[in-house]
Design a protein around this nucleic acid. Structure first.
Lengths: 241, 241
DNA sequence: CGCTGTCTTGAAAGGACTCAACGCCGGTGG
DNA sequence: CCACCGGCGTTGAGTCCTTTCAAGACAGCG
């Protein structure tokens, strides 16, 4: 079976055999989590970074009054906290949304990479820069789009990210996320997300049966969400030297 | 005069004489911009990254319907687009909010650094990770805080960031940003930002005379904005080796 | 001293929230 | 194999925060 991290990094340019071996090596310590388990606790200090091999996870922050905001979704191939390598303390925690398989990569290994593998360092850095670009786009959607737009945008983004790691089929994909969880990502209430999803379904833009989501009218949904996939930098190459 | 980038990076650990010299060298090409000038055009491809030496700048995105969202503010010592080094295309542009002095750092110089200066590479990487942490916090404020909270949070954040580069005085700082620009950062309308600022002034939490902003009741403002500065990672050390 | 951009203010409209209640489905245990 | 249980999705009505649309006051600058 292919390694999701290697697949993801090779989007941006070929890796040498040695580099692949290193990646294979540092991701050999694997743990599994149940749905809703906390993978990285809010406010904890990490000595390793976690990589999703299978399943969905979400990074989130809590307000003192109990409100919750999801700041990022993580799919296979994503580091959930590569930044903990340099940042150490996690202001936001990561929870498993579905059952997850996760590799724990020791920070010491990452430090060795930065010393001896400049190209790997740059690609890993690249992935964190793409994360930041995704964050900025979320800021845009939260700040300036209404509920319909946000939901549409999200469904498009998720499609393209999953497609990049081969987890879509005919514009459809598994989305085992509750409407409550979605609402915590969109900055809305569960009730309102529900109404919006019904609207989109009613207009024939999407079909959803709880677990599987199908985008019936990609063109229109894209327009509805002001969606432009450039910010994901999928398959963007970087130079080796 | 001290170099804002060196000051900023030395927060996280001492730099060697050679490293400082390298930084000095790569930031020697300086340009100035007038207020409201576009420093990095939206959608452009860059061959250098821009560093703010003096003044305020803002990164922003536009929606097709003309709505605008500011995704980040940049103050002296900040790279506005270090990510363009690896990402190349800028989905969001950067505009000068006040007159600005900016250094253009060639990407080729940055690539050399990643090859020959592992520690510098890590600190630079660190700054982009902190940017991402700030983004996540903005996502939180946009998604789950109301207008009052957001404004309060922003005023606290700005204080601490400016303080870290020595641009505050007694809980006061220069904020030459129009209410319209602020509203584009908060995801609100200018009118509403105006009303909120009046509230905060009326309650004695802040004083503002257009250009200068003074926080009179730090404790209370902090609470109002659910503010916790940890995510800024100010003065957080990282290991040299 | 006039101009232009920014700040202020008011009233009405609207999108999203709140609070509840109900139905549905899958999992669990008898 | 079926009945119960709990989480999740769905609905409705009323409320509230923020927007919209104007118009007027103010201040800095040429």
């Amino acid at each position: 079976m292919s390694h999701p991290l290697i697949t993801k990094l090779e989007q941006h340019g070929p890796l040498s055999g040695e580099e692949k071996q290193v990646l294979q090596q540092i991701t050999s310590q694997v743990t599994t989590y149940k749905a809703h388990e906390e993978v990285v606790p809010e406010g904890s200090t990490q000595s390793h970074s976690s990589l999703v091999l299978k399943g969905f996870a979400a990074r989130h922050q809590h307000l003192t009054d109990g409100k919750r905001q999801i700041t990022a979704f993580h799919i296979p191939g994503d580091f959930m906290d590569l930044h903990s390598f340099l940042l150490k303390t996690m202001e936001d925690g990561v929870g498993a949304l579905t059952p997850c398989t996760v590799a724990a990569v020791p920070h010491s290994d990452l430090r060795e990479i930065t010393k001896n593998y400049p190209y790997l360092t740059r690609v890993l850095w690249l992935t964190t820069l793409i994360d930041a670009a995704v964050h900025r786009t979320w800021i845009m959607t939260l700040g300036r789009m209404d509920a319909r737009n946000r939901v549409a945008h999200f469904l498009c983004e998720m499609h393209d990210r999953l497609e990049a790691v081969g987890l879509t089929k005919d514009h459809g994909y598994d989305l085992r996320i509750t409407q409550q969880e979605l609402s915590d990502a969109f900055g809305l209430t569960g009730v309102h997300v529900n109404r919006i999803l019904q609207e989109l379904r009613g207009e024939g833009l999407i079909t959803s049966h709880g677990k599987t989501l199908i985008i019936n009218d990609w063109e229109h949904l894209q327009k509805e969400g002001h969606y432009n996939p450039d910010y994901l930098h999928i398959r963007q190459k970087i130079e080796r030297d």
